[in-house]
Amino acid sequence: MEQHVLVVFPHPDDETFGCGGTIAQFTKSGVPVTYVCGTMGQMGRNMGRPFFANRESLPSIREAELEKACQAIGIQHLIKLGLRDKTIEFEDPEQLTDRIEQILKEVRPSLVITHYPGHAVHPDHNALGDVTIRAVSRLSLQERPIVYAHAFARDCQDMLGAPDIINDISAVSEMKLAAIRAHRSQSQVILPRLGNGQFKNPSSKNSYSHMLERESFWTYRFS
């Protein structure tokens, strides 16, 4: 049984799309979850459908959506790092690692969930996953939490093998769905497919069915 889960991702909605069901399972069973969100997704290109945000209004809209999504899946503690979308890989990794290390020492999580560096498609995902792994590896073996790394690059199974953690999240799919809906500006483009039942149709090419059924992770092996 976990005592405290720390989730570290760069964008509002990464927590929902990537592991909203897993987070909901933890919070539902009374395990506190802290979310460290790197940026406000200032440079996202989704503006809602029909679009209601613009480049300048998007950050505050996404911030409000994030608060709502956190409520939907039971996240009670949100830490915003205040970085800028698409720039994490250009920041000083030592400084970012210090920051995450400090948070690790405050929160003392038993489990950390972050992106698998090199296997998470978006440069921000890979960069923040990397500094998070670096920060965890600074801790002594006794202090070190388990790390679930989230990967979704097309070739990640070839590179990493099959994920060792496969969570059946169907019991909390409604909570995840509520969080997906909360991220309105980002999810409206895919929601019509949900309405057409494509979430439920595994044969569909653009199927999102897996998103409400299971979430997979690789337990990170520190060398």
Binding site: R45, N54, V189
Partner: peptide, 26 residues
């Protein structure tokens, strides 16, 4: 400020050009 943007058929931003007399927020 003058905000100009180009959106695709899904309402996603593809191009933006914005002008302001004071710096944009970071």
């Amino acid at each position: 400020r003058l905000l100009l943007a180009g959106h695709d058929q899904d309402g996603r931003l593809a191009v933006a050009l914005e002008l302001s007399l004071s710096p944009f927020e970071l």
